[in-house]
């Protein structure tokens, strides 16, 4: 007898926005959180010891720092990317990539048409890659 195939729910679930993203805590959660606080200005919203996890809020999205997940990549909006890069670099923050043009949104797929997306990258002590993203108008390029 043929096994019946799962065809999915009769109504699609109402899945909404991203609530939480898991990133690696690294060997020393204190160091990782200190980096996010001191370099990015994002302090821990909550911390639970045990089990040794912490949350940082990025807008409405919770960034969960925990053991047991590989280092991840998260892209964060920033205003004033170039100035931030200049200041942070002068303070000794190592960037893996300076602000660079990654995409021209000529058709307005992700925002106003004609804007471009610039990104810079750095890594936290846990090895997570942080992409800092800013959209520029054509006049700002």
């Amino acid at each position: 007898m043929a096994r019946s195939q799962y065809t999915g729910p009769t109504e699609m679930p109402a899945i909404g926005a991203v609530r939480q993203v898991a990133l690696a805590a690294g060997r020393n959660l204190d160091s990782t959180l200190a980096f996010w606080r001191d370099v990015l200005g994002m302090s821990a919203h909550a911390r639970y010891d045990p089990p040794g996890i912490a949350f940082i809020m990025a807008g409405d999205v919770r960034l969960l720092f925990t053991d047991g997940v590989p280092a991840g990549t998260v892209y964060l909006d920033i205003a004033g990317l170039e100035a931030f890069h200049t200041d942070a670099k002068a303070s000794g923050v190592p960037f893996t990539a300076p602000p660079s043009l990654v995409h021209r949104d000529t058709e307005g797929t992700f925002g106003p048409a004609g804007e471009s997306e610039w990104m810079a990258f750095l890594k936290d002590p846990a090895g997570n890659t942080i992409g800092l993203v800013e959209r520029h108008t054509p006049q700002e390029e």
């Binding site: 990549t73 300076p98 660079s100 043009l101 990654v102 990104m119 890659t129 992409g131 390029e141």
Partner: peptide
């Protein structure tokens, strides 16, 4: 690709960049 955007801006889209302008769309560190 990150060199391309700097060259475009500094030297006003020189012809010697060829089609790298398009080829570099959505290239990021990952």
């Amino acid at each position: 690709c990150r060199m391309v955007s700097h060259i475009e801006q500094t030297y006003e889209y020189p012809h010697w960049l060829g089609d790298l302008y398009n080829a570099c769309d959505w290239m990021d560190e990952r």
